[in-house]
C-alpha cells in the first residue's frame, strides 16, 4: 500500500502550503494570501483578539501590581508568549422538569417549659424551569489549562464577534486557528447532556437524598462555531517556569501559576496549627458544655482536614490564582 500525501498550493501564487486536517486557514508564507480550507467561512465567527503586545503589557502590569509578584518582579523573565483560537459552540438551553427527595430539618419545639430540638426527614418535591447558557468545546477529548475559565468568561463578558472572512490583517495576526472536530449536531447533544447534568448537580445540593429527577432539555438558541482567542505566557523565576493564561479579547486573567515563597509556607504552617486549635477547642467545648458528643468527632475531623490540607501546601511547588 502506498501513502499518497496530497499537496496544497496557494490559490494566488501557487506556493506550497503546510496543511493538516486541523487547518481552517493558512497564510501563504510567500505572498501572504489567506487560503481557506472550510466550505463556508460565513458560518464561523471570530472574537477579535488584542495583539501580543497588549497581552504582554497586561502581564507586566500584573507583575508590578500583584502583592506577591511585585516583590520578585526584577527576577521574572518571559520565556514564551503564544496565542491560539479555540473553537466553541454556545447554546441557550431550556431545562424543565421536577425532582423529589428527602431533606433533614431541625425543628425547635416548646412543650410547656421544655424546649426541644428535633430532627425530621421531610419529603420535598419541586418543579424547575430555567434557561442555561452552555459552552461546548468543539474538540474531542481535549481540555487545556483554564479553557473552562475561558468559556465562562466569554459567557460573562459577551464580547462582539465577526465572521472569520472579515479579518483583514492576517500577516500581523500571529495566532493559529484550531479546527473544530465536532459538528453543530453533535455539539447540541453534548450541550443538552451538560445542561441536564448541571441541573442534576444543582438539585442534588438542595436535598439530602434525591429519589427522582426528571429533566427535559430543549435548545432555544445556538451560536455559530465561535473561535475564542486564548493566550498564555510562560515566565521564569530562578530556574523554574510558571504559566499564566489570558482571554484574548480583553486581556482578562484566567488562571495564573505563581511561585510559593517562604512567607507563604510560614502562613501554611500557621494554617496547620489553626487546625489543631479548631479541634482542641471543639473537643473541650463539647466536653465542658455537655453537648452532643458527635460535635467533638466533627471538630476533630475538621481540625485534621484543615491541618492536613495546610501541611500539604507547605511542601507544594506552585500556587494557582484565579482572575
Amino acid at each position: 500500500m502506498s501513502i499518497v500525501i496530497q499537496e496544497f498550493k496557494c490559490r494566488n501564487c501557487g506556493g506550497k502550503l503546510d496543511v493538516t486536517p486541523e487547518t481552517i486557514m493558512v497564510v501563504c508564507s510567500y505572498c501572504g494570501t489567506p487560503n481557506w480550507f472550510v466550505e463556508a467561512t460565513e458560518d464561523i465567527m471570530v472574537v477579535p483578539s488584542m495583539g501580543r503586545d497588549d497581552i504582554v503589557k497586561s502581564f507586566l502590569t500584573r507583575i508590578s501590581e500583584d502583592f506577591d509578584l511585585k516583590r520578585i518582579a526584577d527576577k521574572i523573565q518571559i520565556v514564551e508568549v503564544r496565542g491560539v483560537y479555540i473553537p466553541f459552540y454556545f447554546f441557550s438551553i431550556k431545562v424543565e422538569g421536577f425532582y423529589e427527595g428527602w431533606k433533614t430539618e431541625r425543628v425547635v419545639e416548646t412543650v410547656g417549659r421544655r424546649t426541644q430540638v428535633k430532627t425530621r426527614r421531610k419529603r420535598v418535591s419541586e418543579s424547575f424551569s430555567s434557561i442555561l447558557k452552555i459552552p461546548v468545546l468543539a474538540r474531542r477529548s481535549a481540555e487545556d489549562f483554564s479553557l473552562k475559565e475561558l468559556s465562562s468568561h466569554y459567557n460573562y463578558s459577551n464580547p462582539p464577534s465577526i465572521p472569520i472572512g472579515d479579518i483583514k490583517d492576517f500577516k500581523n495576526l500571529k495566532m493559529s486557528f484550531l479546527r473544530s472536530e465536532i459538528g453543530v449536531e453533535e455539539a447540541s447533544v453534548i450541550a443538552r447532556d451538560d445542561a441536564g447534568d448541571m441541573m442534576l448537580r444543582k438539585v442534588s445540593s438542595k436535598v439530602d437524598e434525591l429519589t427522582k429527577f426528571v429533566c427535559n432539555t430543549k435548545i432555544v438558541e445556538k451560536s455559530k462555531l465561535t473561535l475564542l482567542p486564548y493566550w498564555y505566557i510562560i515566565y521564569s523565576y530562578g530556574n523554574a517556569q510558571y504559566r499564566v493564561a489570558y482571554a484574548g479579547w480583553d486581556c482578562h486573567l484566567l488562571l495564573a501559576q505563581e511561585p510559593v515563597m517562604a512567607y507563604h509556607r510560614v502562613g501554611y504552617i500557621l494554617g496547620a496549627v489553626s487546625g489543631c486549635l479548631i479541634s482542641a477547642l471543639g473537643l473541650t467545648f463539647t466536653f465542658v458544655g455537655g453537648l452532643n458528643p458527635i460535635y467533638s468527632l466533627f471538630s476533630l475531623a475538621a481540625g485534621c482536614v484543615v491541618s492536613w490540607f495546610f501541611g500539604g501546601k507547605v511542601v507544594e511547588d506552585v500556587r494557582i490564582e484565579g482572575g
Partner: peptide
C-alpha cells in the same frame, strides 16, 4: 483534641 490534627498536618 490538639494532637491528632497535628499528626495529620505532619504527614506531608
Amino acid at each position: 483534641g490538639g494532637v491528632p490534627p497535628a499528626f495529620a498536618g505532619a504527614i506531608p
